[in-house]
Amino acid sequence: MDDSVVVSPDWLASRLDDPQVRVVDVRDAWEFDGIGHLPGAVNIPFDSYRDESDVDRGTLPGAEAFAALLGDAGISPEDTIVAYDDTHGVFAARFVLTALEYGHDDVRLLDGDYSAWNQSHETTSETPEIEPVEYEADPRSPEESPLVGYDAVADALERDAVFVDTREQEEFEEARLPGAVLFDWREVVNDETRRLKPEAELEALLADHGITPDREIVLYCNTARRISHTYVVLRALGYENVHFYEGSLTEWLANDGEVESGPVASE
């Protein structure tokens, strides 16, 4: 997957001296400063690119606000961005999704997280010097974007789409979209290495849940954080027909959408 949206620690380590490869740490500032970070990384905390008030675009921060974040971090539109966190990549994946939505062509997710990197590569507490730049976002058109809203999701329920619920089993049994399959986003992560499982294993795991490249796939969770990780993984595996329900179950329930509850009988 090193040539795709997901890159390995070794891939990144060999490119840290490239001025156009920019590393983004999305942890809280106290973690970035107090625990340490990857060499040359800039800190753009998760809360800074998530805005609960953006009712039209879910929790995306808005194109101008995101462009300001990147510009203040010294990142240009032509740079390659590699994002990471210390939570198996779930917060960093949200950054990747956001950057893609606002037109950044080359943005990657570090396979693993800070702890995975720290097992075999150096970290630092030095804060890099940042020279701010002007960054202009180029948001995707609705036709280009994987993001879908309530009406599109309701329409997809009438088709043979696979609705993938990336939450935990307890949440799934409390309420879920009709016919959804449970696929906890953490199933793709190896707990020991903190990195993604091998590609063949991922494909078999997804297929066991009926999540295959030939199907139309709709991802949702509660507030579109966890599906960001699953979306990036599917993209890395070459899945193309993947829809990202930004409003997720929060919006679905607010619109009195139909739900199911209770355990699913095993076949």
Results as ranks from 00 to 15, higher is better:
2 D>W: 09
4 S>G: 15
5 V>W: 03
6 V>K: 03
6 V>C: 07
7 V>L: 10
8 S>A: 01
11 W>Q: 06
12 L>N: 06
13 A>G: 04
14 S>V: 11
25 D>E: 07
25 D>V: 02
25 D>A: 06
28 D>H: 14
30 W>L: 13
31 E>M: 13
32 F>K: 06
34 G>H: 04
37 H>A: 10
39 P>L: 12
41 A>C: 06
43 N>E: 05
47 D>Y: 14
55 V>E: 15
56 D>M: 00
56 D>F: 02
56 D>V: 00
58 G>R: 00
60 L>E: 07
61 P>C: 08
64 E>D: 15
68 A>K: 14
71 G>C: 10
71 G>W: 08
74 G>Q: 04
75 I>L: 09
79 D>W: 09
79 D>T: 08
80 T>H: 12
83 A>T: 05
83 A>M: 07
85 D>E: 12
86 D>P: 05
86 D>M: 13
90 V>E: 10
91 F>T: 13
92 A>G: 11
93 A>I: 02
95 F>V: 10
97 L>Y: 13
98 T>P: 08
101 E>I: 05
103 G>K: 05
107 V>A: 10
107 V>F: 03
110 L>M: 08
113 D>C: 11
115 S>V: 07
115 S>F: 07
115 S>H: 09
116 A>I: 03
117 W>Y: 12
120 S>N: 15
124 T>S: 11
132 P>Y: 04
134 E>K: 12
135 Y>K: 01
138 D>F: 11
141 S>T: 15
142 P>D: 14
143 E>H: 10
144 E>H: 08
144 E>G: 13
147 L>N: 11
147 L>R: 15
148 V>S: 05
150 Y>G: 02
153 V>L: 02
154 A>G: 02
154 A>I: 09
154 A>V: 14
157 L>V: 03
157 L>R: 11
158 E>G: 11
158 E>A: 15
159 R>P: 00
160 D>G: 04
160 D>V: 04
161 A>T: 06
165 D>N: 08
172 F>C: 08
174 E>G: 09
175 A>Q: 11
176 R>W: 04
177 L>S: 08
182 L>N: 11
187 E>S: 12
193 T>W: 00
198 P>Y: 02
198 P>G: 06
199 E>T: 14
203 E>F: 03
204 A>E: 13
205 L>C: 09
205 L>G: 14
207 A>G: 09
207 A>R: 01
212 T>I: 02
213 P>W: 00
214 D>Q: 10
214 D>A: 11
216 E>M: 05
218 V>S: 03
221 C>H: 01
226 R>W: 04
228 S>W: 00
233 V>P: 01
233 V>I: 03
235 R>D: 15
237 L>W: 00
239 Y>V: 08
240 E>T: 13
242 V>K: 00
244 F>C: 07
245 Y>L: 06
245 Y>W: 07
247 G>A: 05
247 G>E: 02
248 S>C: 05
248 S>Q: 00
253 L>E: 14
256 D>K: 02
257 G>D: 03
260 E>R: 02
260 E>L: 03
264 V>T: 14
267 E>V: 15
267 E>K: 11
